[in-house]
Structures are given as structure tokens and as C-alpha cells.
Design a protein around this nucleic acid. Sequence first.
DNA 1: TATAAATATTATAATTTTGTAATATACTAA
DNA 2: TTAGTATATTACAAAATTATAATATTTATA
Lengths: 110, 110
Amino acid sequence: MEERIVSMKSDFFKALAHPTRVRILERLAKNSEEVCVCELIEDLGVEQSNLSQHLSILRKQQIITSTKVGLKVMYRIKYPEALTILEKVHKILAQQFQEGEALMRHLADR
Amino acid sequence: MEERIVSMKSDFFKALAHPTRVRILERLAKNSEEVCVCELIEDLGVEQSNLSQHLSILRKQQIITSTKVGLKVMYRIKYPEALTILEKVHKILAQQFQEGEALMRHLADR
DNA sequence: TATAAATATTATAATTTTGTAATATACTAA
DNA sequence: TTAGTATATTACAAAATTATAATATTTATA
């Protein structure tokens, strides 16, 4: 049971473990209103099909939700706590930058 | 450049996106002291080689650090903020449980 | 009803991640 | 120096993730 919770936590992190999905959340965070898929396609510059799959992954984790309005589908963040997690990661990276570690490590692995 | 930061954020989440790595962090969080690899092997019940690789991934992201003491290598959490992130995820899951969503979704995808 | 627009789903090949097994390294003690 | 202990690294096959392309679904409108 504890086993299962751990697995659910790692699933949560998996949902955030892709640049496009991080960008989706940051875009939704910007104007805390709903954003339609069409606008996300424009702003993020990714393929419609690809974006749709990434949205699906975030939706399954209940990090975002959507409502259909006419032809369009509007997405918004469901758990604002997810945003504070993103902010915390940003702060950790900032700290690592100060110590000169973050960028070097990042560059090393490419 | 912003592009690169987004990529570093998703790399950070990737480091947490595995049950064994979540368990490593939670084990290190328990007694906020150092823990040797041998103890982690015991407690987590995973292969030595496998554990070592997971430790390596967390080390690269600077989430943990190690010091060698004789034959043993002691690990500890480097950025305590990483733990608060884990706690936040726990709270989000708890909320989702209350709404009856979390477990169902988890079970559905197996 | 037929067409078009917006989004989702499916299939699939390429890439990445993972676990196991084997080997290597670093340190201690005899 | 030799043997033993603790941990890391490497090689590789299996499993999971990803992007692209093709197709399907839903809704609006002519």
C-alpha cells in the first residue's frame, strides 16, 4: 500500500518529466484563465497531435482539466499546488546556478 | 536560454520519476543523517548495482551528495527543498484521494 | 446532409530508460 | 602483497517514452 503511494508519486513526477509538459504548465500559469488548445499550439510551436498527447498525460494525472466550448477545448490547471512545485524547482536550480553546478552538469550530459 | 531552463526543470523531474528513487529520498529524509549504501540496499531491497545507478542519477541532479568513510559511502540529501516538493506531491495525492480520483486513475493504467 | 474546423486517438519506428550480470575500483586488514 | 568488502561502472537486452503520420471524433455551419 505504501508501495502504491510511492508509485503514484513517481507517476506524478513522470507527468512533469518532459520539456513540453513543463512549458504547457508555465503557459497555463501565466494568465490564470483558461487557454484553448489552438493557442497552446501557437505559443509552444509543437505539432497538434503531439501536444494533444502531452495534454492527455497531464490530464490523466489530474494536474490539468479541460472543458469543451463549441469547437474549442479550454485547458486550465486543476491543482495550483503543481505550480508551487514548479517554482520550488526553479529556486533549487537558481541555487545550483549560484554554486556553478547546474549549467555545467546540464551541458555535460549532452 | 529560457528553453534551456525548461529542459533543466524537466531533467529534475526525471530524476524523481522512478519509485526506487522516490524511496531513496524518503529513506534519506527519515533520519536526516547520513545513510550508507549498504543500509539502503537492506532497507529498499534492491540489487546493489541497480541501487548504485539510481543513486548516480540523483547525484547528477545534485539532489543528494555522498562522502566516503572508509569502505562505506554515506549519502545524504543536498537540497532539503527537494523533500518539501515530495511533501507537496503527497498532499496533492491526498486531495485527489478525497475526490476519489487518484487511486482509480492509478489502477486504470496497469 | 455535407463540409470544415478543432481536437483526440491510434499505429509505429526511433530513442531513452531500466534491470541484470559481469567487471572494475577503492579501501582495509591480514 | 594478497584477499576481502563496499561501491561504481559497463555492456546489453527488455521495457517504456517519444514524435510523426494517419485516421477518427465532435461540433458548427452552409
